[in-house]
Amino acid sequence: MKAFKEKSSIQQIITILILVSTASLYAQAPSQIFEMGNAHYAEGRYQEAIDTYRKILDSDLESAGLYYNLANAHYKLNNVAPSIYYYEKAKLLDPTDNEINNNAQFAQKMKIDGITPLPESIFKKWHSSILNFLTIDGWAYTTVFFVFLFVVLFVSYYFVSQSATKRILFLSFTVSLIIAGISLMFAYNAFAKAEKDNPAIVFAIESQVKSEPNLRSTDAFTLHEGTKVMILDTVKNWNQIRIADGKTGWIQAADVKKL
């Protein structure tokens, strides 16, 4: 019995060591897989890079860098819809990255559809540019930071006796409070916009947009791969969409991929 117990203890120790090692490998796996994908990309093996990057996505992990590299690999293979799709995904996570935005513009040139957006007022353009300057989380963190700064400055104001310093602190915590309020407003607007918008990319090489959600209805217009649309409604396997010039219609759900 003693020998059996000793063997059992050894087996338990080995099992624990294997589990710890496995957990460590899993913890390192995403970064290792990412580097492996980068190596494939550097060697010009773009499809292998795509397959490698997708392993990370399959584990429910994402990042702007991952989407950006995926988009670059698809761009090298002239995969119009996937490259535009993943650049858009990267922009959602990091809207201020210049490399992502520049490469996304190059990918847009591969599209067939030339759609002229509806004109916007100067105020709306200004508001959109500021709103898109940060992500929802970015605006939220900015709000928290300036609220914290306001509290620190406000408390410091009551512990300082010098009038000149008190004036500076008063001005500083007032400005901090104003910036916090503005940041909160943009955070709310960004969240409301994200809740309202439902963008998607056309993945079908060519898709006939219908006037009604059935194949027997008349054709409204034709879209090609890579075009960005807004999904307004869904009926069974059909999505009602709006494109940048304001036209609306119904497209088969299988022809688009939601962002």
Rank of each mutant, 00 (worst) to 15 (best):
I33D: 09
E225F: 01
Q32V: 13
F221A: 02
E120D: 09
L153G: 12
L177I: 11
V175K: 05
S63N: 06
F191Q: 15
L153W: 04
A64L: 07
D113A: 02
F106S: 10
S211K: 15
N239T: 08
D245P: 02
I243N: 02
S163K: 15
A3R: 14
E195I: 07
R216Q: 13
N198A: 05
L259C: 05
L215F: 06
Y141C: 07
Y26D: 05
P82E: 00
Y158E: 10
I251E: 06
A23T: 08
F145K: 10
L215T: 14
K76N: 11
L92F: 04
G65C: 08
L19V: 15
Y85W: 01
L153Q: 15
D233G: 06
A49N: 13
A194V: 12
N198E: 02
Q47N: 10
S121W: 03
I16Y: 07
D97P: 05
V202T: 00
T218A: 14
V144L: 08
K257A: 11
T142E: 14
Y53C: 09
A192H: 09
L25S: 15
T142R: 15
S172L: 11
L177H: 04
L25F: 15
T143H: 08
A104Q: 01
I122V: 14
F146S: 00
F123D: 07
V155S: 10
T52H: 05
S83V: 02
Y85C: 01
S163Y: 10
